[in-house]
């Protein structure tokens, strides 16, 4: 099965896919923006400021999802010595980091009209900031270390340490008294968000997921060409 993930085999797919993903992203984000900024209702408490949710929440979800994926790929890649998993992880990290930054900045902007402050050292916000630092360490590690074995080891350690923070982010609003509101969307129990807000939220999440897929594909292709460049040097 792992042979199917061999870079030479999948380049022919990944090199053609970005343009289709970009078109699909433009279509989905256009629908999402119309829903989020015009059609969805305002909140009875937060008024129009609730619209920030449509960029803040998907960005936070995707940054957490990408970090979890990177961790799983790094651990499996390290145990079974699958170099391509590290290449996939490396290609996922930039969009994960940018989504993390978007979640932090839009959360801060949302905090001003809602809490009266741009920033609070609250458990959810602080743990998201810590995640951004782990992303940063991960990206820097790829730049610092040139030896492959060393970079695989260091990045795996960073993701293993960083993943401890992910359940803390998720449950911080339940474990501590925080300014941040508890989750409105639950997979296992009934969500407390109305469908008129849930639909645009899901559309925007799909758009953000498509954008991260687009960036992943472009970065992955870049990394493959980088490897091929080194191969040409050896010819």
């Amino acid at each position: 099965m792992f042979q199917l993930l061999e870079p030479n085999r999948i380049f022919s797919i990944t090199s053609k896919a970005p343009k289709y993903v970009l078109l699909l992203f433009i279509l989905v984000v256009s629908i999402g923006l119309t829903e989020a900024l015009i059609l969805s209702p305002e909140d009875y408490k937060q008024s129009h400021s609730v619209r920030i949710m449509y960029v803040h929440v998907p960005a936070a979800w995707i940054s957490l999802g990408i970090f979890s994926t990177i961790t799983i790929l790094s651990i499996v890649g390290y145990i079974f010595k699958i170099k391509n998993f590290f290449l996939i992880s490396k290609s996922l990290a930039p969009s994960g980091f940018v989504f993390n930054l978007i979640a932090l900045v839009t959360g801060s902007i949302w905090g001003k009209p809602t809490w009266g402050t741009w920033w609070a050292w609250d458990a959810r916000i602080t743990s998201m900031l810590i995640l951004a630092l782990f992303y940063l360490m991960y990206l820097i590690a790829w730049r610092i270390y040139e030896d492959k074995e060393q970079v695989f080891k260091v990045t795996s350690i960073i993701t293993i340490l960083g993943i401890i923070n992910v359940p803390i982010i998720k449950y911080s609003v339940d474990w501590w008294n925080t300014l941040h509101q508890p989750a409105s969307i639950n997979i296992l129990s009934k969500s407390t968000i109305h469908s008129s807000m849930l639909v645009p939220l899901l559309i925007m999440t799909a758009a953000f997921a498509l954008f991260s897929l687009l960036i992943f594909l472009m970065k992955y292709n870049t990394e493959l060409i980088k490897i091929k460049n080194k191969g040409l040097d050896r010819l």
Partner: peptide, 24 residues
């Protein structure tokens, strides 16, 4: 606040896209 958040998101997307495209 709302437009500021959406503008920041848009600028982040554009910057990331251009950086990665440039590397490619």
């Amino acid at each position: 606040y709302v437009w500021g958040s959406f503008a920041f998101t848009f600028l982040s997307f554009m910057s990331l896209y251009l950086v990665i495209k440039n590397q490619y």
